[in-house]
Amino acid sequence: MFSRIALFLLTNFAVLILAGIVMSVLGVNPNQMSGLLVFAAIFGFGGSFISLLLSKFMAKRSTGAVVITEPRNPTERWLLATVERQAREAGIGMPEVAVYEGPEINAFATGANRNKALVAVSTGLLHNMSEDEAEAVLGHEIAHVANGDMITMALLQGVLNTFVIVLARIVGGFIDSALSGNREGGGRGFAYYIIVFVLEMVFGLFATMISMWFSRHREFRADAGGAHLAGRQKMIAALERLKVNHGQSTLPTQIAAFGIAGGAAKKLFMSHPPLDERIAALRAANNTVV
C-alpha cells in the first residue's frame, strides 16, 4: 500500500513540476489551467479506472476463460487448492480461478480488488508444465495481486494520461499561436486540433515507455513473490520452461501485460523483462517476502 501511495504522489509531483516549467517557459497563465486540469483528470483517470473496474469481466469475455466453481478433475482440484493456500499465505482473499484455451504457456491475474481478483491459466500451461512449475507461476500471479499491481498500474496510467492531455494542449496552444500570429477573435484554429492530436501521439509514446518501465519492474517483484510462495528453484524452473516453450501470446493486447510471459516488443516498450534477466535476478537474490 505504501509503495502505491508513494508512486502516486511522486508521479503527480513530477507532473506538476514539469507542467509548471512548461507553463513558465511558454508564459501560460496558471489561472487558465484549472479547467484544463479538471478536464484532463476526468478523462485521464476516468478511462483508466473504468478499464480497471471492468478488467475481470473483459478478461473472461475476451479469453473465454471458464471459472472453476466445482472442480471436474484432479487438475482443477489441485489448481483451486494451490491458489487457496498461496492466497492465504499472501494475506489476500481467495481469487476466482479460471482456465482458458490457449496453446502457449501463460497465466494472468486481474481485478480491481485484491480480495476479489481473478487468476487464469492457459490449457497450454496445464499441458506443458509440471506441478512444481505451475505452482511457481500461480505464486507469481498471486504476488501480483498481493502487491496491488493492477491498481498501481491504473493509478500510474491515469497520471500519465492526464500529463499527456495537459502538456499536449499547452504546447499545442503555444505552437498554434506562434504559427497563426494574432488570429482575429483570439480563438483556436483547425490547425490547433491537428497539432494537439499529433502531440498526444508523441507524448503518449513517452508515457508508454514510463508505464512499461514500471511494468518490467513489477515483474521482478512478482517473480520474487512467486519464489517466496512456491520456492526459488521452482520459480527458476518455471521461467526456464517458458524459455523453451514460449510461443506467441494469444492474450488480447489489454491483458497481455498481465501475463506471465508478456509479448514481443522493442526493449523500451516491453511489458516484461527478458526471461534471462528474470532468471539471473532470482539466482542472485536472497529469498524475498511478498
Rank of each mutant, 00 (worst) to 15 (best):
F45Y: 13
N73A: 01
A168P: 09
A285K: 10
R85P: 11
M1K: 14
T208F: 14
V121F: 01
A238Y: 02
I151E: 07
R77H: 11
L160I: 06
A134L: 06
G91L: 03
F39G: 10
F2M: 13
I279T: 05
H228S: 15
A87C: 09
A143S: 07
A6Y: 07
A191G: 12
W78G: 05
V83H: 07
I210Q: 11
G247E: 15
A281H: 02
T69G: 13
R216W: 03
R188E: 13
R241Y: 03
Q233N: 13
V97F: 06
A6M: 08
G102I: 02
M33F: 11
L79D: 06
I170P: 08
A230K: 00
I195Q: 03
L9P: 07
V166A: 02
N128K: 14
P274Y: 04
V28S: 07
A59F: 11
I151K: 15
G91N: 01
P252C: 00
M94N: 13
F45L: 05
F214A: 08
D176L: 06
V171P: 03
L36M: 03
R77V: 15
G226A: 04
V290L: 12
T162I: 09
E131V: 11
A222D: 01
V15L: 12
V119P: 09
A65K: 03
A207C: 10
D132M: 10
T253Y: 10
F39Y: 12
A264G: 11
S211T: 12
L126H: 00
T253V: 11
H140M: 04
A154M: 01
R283T: 05
R221E: 15
I17R: 06
L54A: 12
G172W: 03
Y100V: 04
V38G: 04
A143T: 06
P252S: 04
N161R: 07
G262Q: 04
Q248H: 13
F220L: 05
A280N: 12
A81I: 08
S24W: 12
S122P: 00
I68W: 05
A90L: 00
R278M: 01
F57Q: 15
I105E: 04
T162R: 08
T69E: 15
M212N: 15
V171S: 00
E184L: 14
E135F: 06
G35Y: 00
E219N: 02
I175T: 03
F43C: 10
T11A: 13
L179P: 12
N286M: 14
G181M: 02
M58I: 13
I175D: 07
N128V: 08
F269T: 09
V244R: 14
E96A: 06
V202G: 02
Q248A: 14
K243C: 12
L268W: 12
I260L: 08
G181T: 09
G27D: 08
V166I: 04
Q248Y: 10
A154I: 05
L9C: 14
I21T: 06
E101F: 11
L160C: 01
F8H: 10
G35F: 00
E240D: 08
L138P: 05
I68E: 01
E70G: 12
H144G: 04
L205K: 10
Y100D: 10
